[in-house]
Design a binder for these strands. Structure first.
Lengths: 336, 336
DNA sequence: CTTGACTCCCAAAACGTTTTGGAGAATCTT
DNA sequence: AAGATTCTCCAAAACGTTTTGGGAGTCAAG
């Protein structure tokens, strides 16, 4: 309601003094500071954000690009992540703004608009592609950013990612150790780093075991994509006995395909992401998840450190993957 | 990169003229306008957002409060809604910022911070409670806002909501018409308007049919809550033969309880929200959904009209509920 | 030649803060 | 008692826009 000028006037002080009192500078006497604080509290004074941002030359804003392409944005806990991140950024005086990407417009253009209009101090990128033009642009502009997922960019940049390669390799090896020989992979779109990474993990394990990595089908990273991909694999002359799925959503789609084709109890299956839903499917879905608590907080922290100027190399977090064993990965293996 | 002063200098024009040229005012000649536009394009000039906001006395920002309480924030398409809303707001020059609510802090305080710091021009509220202090605060401040869900506030305010009462009443009547007599309700937390509304719908139908509305259990609006509530109802001496669940997530939890207790094929069930996941459960989940496309766009439009000063009464959208029939609502009804 | 209308441009003020570079008074040193 | 130091405070500049209220010049009409 009130601004600094009015507050100062009502106190018989200068704007400067009031401002510095509220900011806790030492060159204002304790008595005055207290008096100012009380008055400010009483009238509910809050500094005008726009004015401060202009003066400080900081936007106090961080943007996260969000493709409006429905459903195509990651797991449900994505929202929790965002909210956690926003919360920790807020503690540092930064707000998180959504940079939606309208159909037909490129994510790159959106980044441009936000960066060149000095609307943000930093950016958060999700769903990275192997070759991600947003990353290159932000690097060229020198604006701090953190990605959720790695890229194949030549210059290092800050990221948080799960070690999908290791996770999917381990899951595949585990199926092999359990006696499976025809282990299929339901893959996500390979232009995304995470999908490619997970696919590579499966492939590496297959080759280590001397098995041909030929039971692989790609689909959209959602239930429907997993359903269709599973049907495709089940049509093969020699069906897989186990399926490693790029995401839980795809795994749940695949589960339905299995129910339709073989009654649902024959083929073992494992997903990735640990959706809450997975505990309630039939059979309960075995899955994997990135280790580490409070993902949002980590993003916020990395972002703040990037803004503070720490070098990219020190701002890279690769988290191990852990199994979440429920039932779907240990269907009885029929006659070897 | 460049600001107005530099751009003006390089063109030999005044700041005023350059500014007005770019804003398309008529009092600058077509020739100059073109010259200015070209130069601006060439250096990639973008007005400094903070400066404009300060001068215009508009934040160009809309906030949506997001409880950081994990999982407690509505259906997955919530994110699509946000993103769609953000997109349409962006077309009007507004950005959507996330106002996270840290544990322990009230949503009211967050609203306060955003509103009193003049950080936003309007607010978007989700998951309304029957008695919602945020609504009262915003009304007292006279700041435009739209809620997702109604409240019991005395003053009217803009909202978008589904007619949960009618939907749940219809669903219950349908079960009755199919011969069910013991129809249970799995309810969400009653302080939320939507949960109370849906519960009222079920209760009304029961009473219309001359049935006692006593098979009702309340739980958290998630899988686990539905699971526990269903177990509770199944422990009753006379079990329900049909269940009407406040949300799909609760219904999916209930489905699991049914599987555990009676093999899963005896009791009919219906949820609400039309989660994509529902098509992939076993049995595929029958559900309801709010009619209307492009929810995000509607929110944006209402918000813009509220900002423009339209009265609240004209900014209320109550959408009908439609059935999405899959399998779970028509389990064979055993011996009447 | 004056008047008015019109076209194109601009100087200056304003938005509300933070920060710079002191100023005046009181206290301490020597 | 003079100089140095410390304590409080403040005027003014700056951040980069948008907007107000004209000011020249040109042209046509009277």
């Amino acid at each position: 309601m009130a601004n600094l000028k009015q507050l100062a006037q009502s106190l018989g002080l200068s704007i400067t003094t009031v401002s510095r009192a509220l900011d806790g500078y030492a060159d204002v006497s304790a008595a005055t500071r207290e008096r100012v604080r009380e008055a400010a509290d009483k009238v509910g004074y809050r500094p005008n954000a726009s004015a401060r941002r202009l003066r400080r030359q900081r936007a106090e804003l961080v943007a996260v690009t969000l493709p409006s392409d429905p459903g195509h944005i990651g797991p449900p806990h994505f929202l929790d992540m965002l909210s956690g991140c926003a919360e920790h950024l807020a503690a540092a005086g930064l707000n998180l703004v959504i940079a939606p990407v309208p159909r037909g417009e490129s994510e790159l253009n959106i980044c441009r608009r936000f960066v060149d209009g000095r609307r943000v101090d930093a950016m958060l990128l999700v769903r990275t592609k192997r070759k991600d033009e947003r990353v290159e642009f932000l690097q060229s502009r020198g604006i701090p950013f953190v990605t959720n997922g790695r890229t194949e960019s030549l210059l290092p940049h800050p990221f948080i990612d799960g070690d999908g390669f290791a996770g999917f390799r381990a899951a595949t090896l585990r199926f092999h150790a359990a006696g499976h020989r025809r282990i299929g992979h339901i893959a996500g779109p390979q232009e995304y780093y995470f999908a490619h990474d997970r696919c590579r993990g499966w492939r590496a394990a297959m080759e280590e075991c001397g098995l041909a990595p030929d039971l692989c089908a790609e689909g959209a990273p959602l239930e429907q994509g997993g359903y269709l991909a599973a049907l495709e694999l089940l049509r093969q002359p020699s069906r897989p006995t186990a399926l490693v799925c790029a995401t839980d959503e795809m795994a749940i789609g695949a589960l339905r395909a299995l129910r339709e084709v073989d009654g649902g109890s024959q083929i073992s299956i494992v997903g990735h992401d640990d959706l809450p839903m997975g505990a309630f499917t039939s059979p309960p879905l075995s899955t994997m998840r990135m280790t580490g608590e409070h993902l949002g907080a980590s993003f916020a922290s990395l972002l703040l450190r990037a803004i503070a100027g720490e070098p990219a190399e020190e701002l890279q977090e690769l988290h191990a993957i852990e199994f979440v064993d429920r039932d779907s990965h240990r269907r009885p293996l029929k006659a070897a």
